[in-house]
């Protein structure tokens, strides 16, 4: 009996985690999906109305705008952060004096909250007292930069603030990758007389594939979750021009009291992530990682 009990200890130790997994992860998702098929408004209803709330969702202007925005934000944010982060990492890899000072400067925004980032840029880009006014004061009175007040441009600024916050992360990941490259490879290339930029292009970038994938996964996860940056920087405005899906769900859950619509939106987000990130995650983490024992 004693023997059997001790054999179960690992399972018992994992019990809290099992409970969390079953209730907080799997259970909530199933429940959410279930609600999305009901006619619930303020309180959950037990009925079943099929895809009604999904039909309503995609005919809701605010949701369509949200999806468009997250796509624009995602592309600009990911490409921007990857490119800037890569150049920062490469430049820091050139045996720079005060490397750690530069690294500290590039990464500090990542330590702060998206709320802080959003508020800081909201102030700087403020059309009446920020950058634009400063240029006017310098005598450049024709300078206009009022994108934050323009419905068709504000989302680009949100992406820009995101890049400011997250490039350091890409830089840190890629720099670690660059430092992991076999030094002999650089020596061989030097003896072959290959110009540095060509070494990066033909040899280093292909070698950093895994690091780029890691950065991509982290950035992509941030895109789907983007909420606090928008809330702090624009509040979704002007109008609904910078709304994003994550904010749509929260607003409809807690302010607008339409939980069927909100959960159908969150289900769409869930499926999108499952199909896009699922395979990458599987390759990155699960596949082929049984420890050699």
């Amino acid at each position: 009996m004693k023997l059997r009990l001790s054999a179960l200890t690992p399972q018992i130790a994992l019990l809290p985690t099992w409970l969390i997994v079953v209730f907080a992860y799997v259970g909530t998702v199933i429940w959410s999906i279930r609600i999305s098929f009901s006619s619930s408004r303020m309180l959950p209803e037990g009925d079943f109305v099929g895809l009604k709330s999904y039909e309503r969702l995609f005919s809701t202007q605010r949701w369509v705008v949200s999806v468009e925005n997250v796509a624009i934000f995602g592309v600009i944010f990911i490409v921007g952060a990857l490119v800037l982060g890569f150049f920062l990492a490469v430049m820091l890899d050139q045996r720079i004096k005060a490397e750690s000072l530069f690294r500290t400067i590039f990464l500090y925004p990542y330590a702060m909250s998206f709320v802080v980032t959003g508020l800081a840029w909201q102030w700087i880009l403020n059309p009446s007292l920020g950058l634009q006014q400063m240029m006017h004061n310098f005598g450049w009175t024709s300078f206009t930069f009022d994108w934050l007040a323009r419905g068709d441009r504000a989302i680009y600024l949100v992406a820009f603030a995101g890049i400011w916050q997250a490039s350091g992360l890409v830089m840190a990941i890629l720099l670690a990758g660059l430092r992991g490259i076999d030094e002999d490879l650089w020596k061989a290339a030097k003896i072959d007389g290959i110009p540095t930029w060509r070494v990066y292009l033909h040899i280093v970038i292909p070698l950093l594939g895994g690091m780029f994938a890691t950065a991509l996964v982290l950035l992509a996860a941030a895109v789907v979750k983007v909420y606090d940056l928008v809330v702090a920087m624009t509040g979704g405005g002007p109008g609904i021009s910078t709304e994003v899906p994550a904010k749509f769900v929260i607003d409809y859950l807690f302010d607008r009291q339409n939980i069927a619509l909100a959960t159908s939106a969150s289900t769409v987000m869930f499926l999108a992530v499952l199909f896009v990130l699922g395979p990458i995650l599987y390759r990155q983490y699960i596949h082929n990682n049984g420890r050699a024992a």
Binding site: S32, I35, A246
Partner: peptide, 24 residues
């Protein structure tokens, strides 16, 4: 299984969990 669910769970938008969690 536990690891796979946790890992996937980390990347899924929190919005999916929120309402049921509030109720629980």
């Amino acid at each position: 299984l536990i690891f796979a669910i946790l890992l996937l769970g980390a990347f899924i938008p929190y919005q999916v969990y929120l309402y049921p969690l509030v109720r629980m």
